[in-house]
Amino acid sequence: MKILAVLLGLCLVFVFVWERVDMVRVGYQIERLKRDKTALERQRDELRVQFSTLSASGRIARVATKELGMGLPQQGQVILVQFRPGNTQPVAVADAVPVEVRVAKNDLLARRY
């Protein structure tokens, strides 16, 4: 009986010590994960800033005009075509300016990516 009591006591001590040690270990683990989380959040924020900088309309326009040789459409060249279901008759206007429409092919992008 006495031996059992001693063993039980030892078990309790062991559990208590193990719990304390494990708490410290988990504490370090939590801190490491927190640091990782912070680092990833920092990286995410840096990437968001980078994305925002790279996707700025001003930059896209600069790349389009300076590097890709594109240009802004001149006044009257952009025409929104309104589709009215049921109206299949083309509307002829005598003094309308003929506009050339070109479709850009994405060969360059397809090759590169």
Partner: peptide, 14 residues
């Protein structure tokens, strides 16, 4: 996407 009310003709060259 505000469209004009005035009709126009297009000469397509694809």
């Amino acid at each position: 996407g505000v469209g004009s009310n005035e009709p126009v003709t297009l000469a397509m060259s694809l």
